[in-house]
Design a protein around this nucleic acid. Structure first.
Length: 292
DNA sequence: TTGTTGTTTCCTGATT
DNA sequence: CAATCAGGAAACAACA
């Protein structure tokens, strides 16, 4: 069991991870949060805005985040069925959701209900307020690098919102299968999840790459389109990962072992000859600039 | 309760 | 020489 009573959560003032981290790269302590994605608040939308008032963009954000939290492939649902603002979204019935997103519909419906009534996610897979709090409390300022680790990235980075997006007539359309139609029509595919604490290592890495402004200088793209990236501060990344997992003894050595296990699963591809360089594989989702 | 998954930890040896 | 890379093996915690 991870030994993390509250004392450990808010890392004691010894030589903590924070100290090491802040010592290793200064921008960490106070990046310019306001510069995050224009038109984006820089904060988690679900916290400060009722779904009813979401813009289309925020609806998309919610959609992506919810799918991600449930480990559902983004291609599983026709996004164009959700080309609407929050008001329209909230007017959808359970059946509407099912029509629009098939077997994923109920999940989305439930998620939205939670948001409507609680103002935030209430399902067990979501992070708890406790999680957020500790992250916040630990940090030098409120940059919340991993507030919602599962998918706290601007969706614009993940699926590029193209204007080619059909001005849809809401959810009445029969929800055609996604282009690569990997989703069986009739059978509600079981929602796979096993995502303790919200994020896997590769997602954590991915999110650092997608949001360099939050954790500058840790990892950088070598080839953005190919998904090749390089660790700039390997130990700092390891410390950050360890911090997220409440494991102060995490090292790059150990982190890299976990990374190597990804080769077999094709979440990463081997890049030989180059130290600290990895490449996303076919089973890694969400890193492309234009993810379908 | 048991099996699986995704690491974490440790280790030996090779490579840069 | 130190830092990485490669994997095998075993331990572990969270889940299903």
């Amino acid at each position: 069991m991870v030994l993390l009573p509250s004392s450990v959560m808010s890392i004691p003032s010894t030589m903590s991870v924070d100290n090491q981290l802040t010592a290793s790269w200064s921008p960490y302590s106070c990046p310019d949060v306001s510069m995050v994605t224009p038109g984006y608040t820089g904060r988690l939308w679900s916290q400060d805005l009722q779904p009813q008032y979401w813009s289309k963009f925020q609806v998309w954000e919610w959609l992506q985040q919810t799918l991600d939290m449930h480990q559902i492939d983004a291609t599983s649902i026709p996004f164009h069925n959700f080309d609407m603002d929050g008001r329209q979204l909230c007017s959808m019935s359970y059946q509407d959701f099912t029509r629009a997103a098939g077997s994923v519909g109920p999940i989305l419906y439930q998620s939205l209900c939670d948001l409507k009534w609680n103002g935030q996610y209430g399902t067990t897979e979501m992070y708890t307020p406790m999680d957020i709090k500790t992250e916040i409390d630990d940090l030098p300022c409120s940059i919340l690098p991993f507030k919602d680790e599962t998918s706290f990235y601007s969706t614009a980075d993940i699926f590029d919102i193209k204007p080619s997006f059909q001005p849809s007539s809401l959810v009445t359309s029969p929800a055609p299968p996604s282009p690569d139609s990997k989703q069986p029509h009739s059978r509600p595919h079981p929602v796979k999840k096993h995502n303790p604490r919200g994020t896997h290592l590769w997602e954590f890495i991915r999110d650092i790459l997608l949001h360099p402004e939050r954790n500058p200088g840790l990892i950088k793209w070598e080839d953005r389109t190919e998904g090749v990236f390089r660790f700039l501060k390997s130990e700092a990344v390891a410390q950050l990962w360890g911090k997220k997992k409440n494991n102060s003894s995490m090292t790059y050595e150990k982190l890299s072992r976990a990374m190597r296990y990804y080769y077999k699963r094709e979440i990463l591809e081997r890049v030989d000859g180059r130290r600290l360089v990895y490449k996303f594989g076919r089973n890694a989702r969400g890193w492309r600039e234009s993810e379908k």
